[in-house]
C-alpha cells in the first residue's frame, strides 16, 4: 500500500530556525561562502532537518506523534537550498512493507528533492493506530 505523498517547502529561513532549535550551527547550513569553499554547490539543509521533516510525514501517517518505534535513514545527496523566497521542496512518499501481528507497521520511505533521492534505506516502524 502506498501512502499519500507529502511535500515540504524548505527555505533559508527554515534552516536558520532549525539551526537555532537544534544547536547545529555548522556554517555549511547558512553561509554560501563556507559551503562553496568545501565543494558544495551552495548552502545545504541539515541532514537532520530533512530527517525531521520525513519524521513529521511518518507521524502524520501514523496518526499520532508518539507512534514511532524505530526510524533510520542514510543521507545520500544534499538538499541544496537557494537564497530566494521559494527555496526548494522535499517530497516524501512511503509504502507499507509489513504489518506485524504485534501491531507494528513497517514503512519504506522515499524522500526526493528536484526528482533525486536524498535519502536511502529510509525506514520507519510505527505502532498501528490505536
Amino acid at each position: 500500500m502506498e501512502l499519500a505523498a507529502k511535500t515540504f517547502r524548505v527555505t533559508r529561513a527554515d534552516l536558520v530556525q532549525y539551526a537555532g532549535a537544534s544547536g547545529d550551527f555548522n556554517p555549511i547550513h547558512w553561509s554560501d561562502r563556507v559551503a562553496t569553499k568545501v565543494g558544495l554547490p551552495g548552502v545545504i539543509a541539515h541532514g537532520m532537518f530533512t530527517m525531521a521533516l520525513v519524521g513529521r510525514a511518518v507521524t502524520e501517517w501514523a496518526g499520532s506523534p508518539d507512534a514511532v518505534v524505530e526510524y533510520g535513514v542514510r543521507f545520500t545527496r544534499p538538499v541544496v537550498v537557494p537564497d530566494d523566497d521559494q527555496g526548494t521542496e522535499v517530497e516524501v512518499t512511503a509504502v507499507v512493507r509489513e504489518v506485524t501481528e504485534e501491531g507494528l507497521t513497517r514503512l519504506d520511505v522515499t524522500a526526493t528533492c528536484l526528482g533525486e533521492k536524498v535519502l536511502s534505506q529510509a525506514r520507519a516502524t510505527i505502532r498501528t493506530a490505536r
Binding site: G47, M48, V69
Partner: peptide, 16 residues
C-alpha cells in the same frame, strides 16, 4: 572534524 560527513542516523525508542 573538517573531513567528517554524517552518513546514517537511526533511533530505536523505548518511549518518546
Amino acid at each position: 572534524y573538517s573531513r567528517l560527513v554524517h552518513g546514517d542516523q537511526r533511533f530505536a525508542y523505548t518511549r518518546p
